[in-house]
Nucleic acid binder design. Structure first.
Lengths: 150, 150
DNA sequence: AAAACTGTAACATTTTTTATTACTAATTAA
DNA sequence: TTAATTAGTAATAAAAAATGTTACAGTTTT
């Protein structure tokens, strides 16, 4: 299919899905369980009790990262395009979150307060360390490993 | 003050504040910068450009954990009740989040699907490891350390 | 007694997330 | 070659979560 419209950036047209990582891992686990089939978004959605459109949105993200390929039309669907042993949870994490962290206060802090002026910068540094830490952990787990738990 | 009403559980009466950790760290850093003063919620809110009521809600949480003490009435406010060197970011983390993680899909997955049946359990195990990891990191940083960066 | 606080309830608003509907385009199989 | 089925995506609606506001009771100091 080929829409003319520019699909500039997820940020503008799509909202973020906060269960994104979980949903994406679920999708990939299923695809890995049926490596020779094209699974439909409807089938996948049935396993997670989720609207098929949301599944397709996550699949669009996976396609953009060349992790899956899909086929339109009757008997179409999606299948893994990579070897599950070579795909780590870290990569999935990075495709679905920018980073972990413990959040920021919503409003701009007071720049005239020595604490307010630097709080976000200091939190960012802290969260950046957390990310390194978590990334190192997730890097050691492949989709294949995860999938074998089922 | 002493309201009669039962303040059973934050979960029911208060909404969760997702910037909770950031806000709490901000509050504690300020308190640590003025260890001899009772700071008012209005003053603190001014540093973070936040509604004073939200500050008081977080302070209520800190009080419940005996981290701060506060004084009502004129010239009242809040001050640290512990030594900043003995309070780690891990403890603050645990007072404001139950845990980190990368989320779950909102709906109950399909229990008739082998993947759906176990996905949440497997994600939980994964997130639990992440928590150990992050906790170990945060345990090594005291409020004093963090505060010294300002 | 007045002023300045905290504590907390109740409710309003805003923001984010999730779900739905509808339609275009592609592919397959009868 | 047409009907059925599927992906892609827009637009919008609904639900949930987070944040903000107002109001006022109770406390303490001056």
């Amino acid at each position: 299919m080929c829409y003319k419209t520019n699909y500039i950036c997820n940020k503008f047209y799509y909202s973020m899905i906060s269960g994104k990582f979980a949903i994406t891992v679920h999708i990939l686990t299923l695809l890995n369980k049926f490596p020779n089939d094209y699974l439909s978004s409807e089938f996948i959605a049935g396993s997670m009790n989720l609207n098929p459109v949301l599944v397709r949105k996550e699949i669009a993200n996976l396609k953009a990262h060349h992790i899956v390929e899909s086929k339109e039309g009757k008997n179409g669907g999606t299948k893994l395009a990579v070897n599950a042993s070579n795909l780590s949870l870290k990569e999935i994490f990075e495709m679905t979150f920018e980073s972990i962290g413990l959040g920021f206060a919503k409003n701009q802090p007071n720049p005239d307060c020595p604490v307010g002026k630097k709080i976000n910068q200091n939190l960012e540094a802290l969260y950046s360390e957390m990310n390194k830490n978590v990334s190192a952990q997730l890097e050691n787990i492949s989709l294949e490993d995860f999938s074998n738990q089922f």
